[in-house]
Amino acid sequence: MPLYKLQINGQTHEVDVDADTPLLWVLRDNLNLVGTKYGCGVAQCGACTVHFNGSATRSCVLPVSAIGNSKITTIEGLSVNGDHPLQQAWDEVDVAQCGYCQAGQIMSAAALLQQKPKPTMEEIDRTMQGNICRCGAYHRIREAIKLASTKA
């Protein structure tokens, strides 16, 4: 198996995995970064969302061989103390029900705010429609993004 040097959350990690291994499983199985979730494996639910050079990307369909020197950020690396404005807003609005999809939701939202610090409701909806919340916490997800955008 080939050896890959991955830039994840500001650190270099070496992993020895098959070239077609999705980043999701490298994170979860090899690097013990389990905040990134498996939901569908086919880029339909957004639970596995990470940042690939700052863009929201579904890690379940991103082969490790395609990463190269690109910078990957996972929920564990979004902020040092878990206090990214979105993480704070998620607490303030009390978003989570089961919580399983929320890391992916936050990563999608964080990429949006990076590109568009003050998004409209329509822009929020359009971005976030790729992330399923089976508990139906969409109202609060939306509210938390709006709240974070006013603080950032």
């Binding site: 389990v34 905040g35 498996y38 929920i75 878990g82 993480q87 607490d91």
Partner: peptide, 23 residues
């Protein structure tokens, strides 16, 4: 009263809470 979910911090920072995360 409205009291926040006690697991908010762990959920929003990606802590290993779920069955699939168990190792």
């Amino acid at each position: 009263k409205a009291v926040k979910n006690v697991a908010n911090k762990d959920i929003t920072t990606g802590k290993p809470l779920f069955g699939l995360d168990f190792h």
